[in-house]
Design a protein around this nucleic acid. Structure first.
Length: 201
DNA sequence: GATAGGATTCACT
DNA sequence: GTGAATCCTATCA
């Protein structure tokens, strides 16, 4: 598994499909410019959702809600979960194919203080700041207005190429928080000696 | 038009 | 470990 080193390479990997793109996105950087403050974070946890997956929003028919998943690879799909949380997905596969990669966990790089403020968060270990899809959107101020935007062509929210470091490895585990197809190993976490990712099945 | 359920998070015990 | 908060979407009558 090689990590993308350019925007073109990143787009190509996303177009190759969710299952191969999800592990490749580990180590890539999500950057967000909000009110002049740069927030950036390294992706350390993803989940792949494909059209033939009962747990995916795109399973079955194409609806107004899951329409973004059928768009161009690199498009953002933001949806509301449990009425109050927002979750960010990166659309993968070709146009007309309902696939996406859910960004479940990131490691803050820049703008940590701002993220803490946006999360209205205090105390607790720092690793808890962005270790959930809802937390990422809250910390980086990503709302439904980002739905359908292209994440690779710049702007105030973008996905940038990155790589995994020496000593880091990719773990594939079953997904969490879902009720269908729970046994498919489509959750990918970046593991290192320094960071022990939680691998609750 | 009504209703059930969900790719979550957090406070509380 | 358990349960509440909260609202959008799909589905059905």
């Amino acid at each position: 598994m090689t990590s993308p080193r350019s925007e073109q390479a990143l787009r190509a990997i996303l177009e190759s499909g969710a299952v191969s793109a999800a592990p490749a996105l580990l180590g890539c950087v999500l950057s967000r410019l909000v009110e002049g403050t740069l927030l950036s974070a390294r992706i350390v946890e993803t989940e792949a959702y494909t059209q033939d997956d009962p747990a995916s929003h795109s399973f079955g028919r194409r609806t107004p809600r899951n329409e973004p998943m059928f768009g161009r690879a690199g498009t953002a799909y933001v949806y509301t979960s449990y009425g109050m949380h927002r979750c960010l997905n990166v659309v993968t596969g070709g146009e007309g194919i309902g696939e996406a990669v859910l960004v479940r966990g990131v490691e803050p790089i820049e703008g940590v203080d701002a993220m803490i403020a946006y999360r209205a968060w205090s105390g607790r270990p720092r690793r808890d700041l962005c270790n959930g899809p809802g937390k990422i959107c809250q910390a980086m101020r990503i709302g439904l207005e980002w739905n359908l935007r292209d994440l690779l062509t710049g702007g105030e929210l973008r996905l940038e190429p990155g790589s995994i470091r020496k000593g880091e490895s990719i773990l594939a585990t079953p997904r969490i928080g879902i009720t269908k197809a729970v046994d498919l190993p489509r959750r990918f976490v970046l593991s290192s000696d320094q960071r022990r990712a939680r691998c609750d099945s």
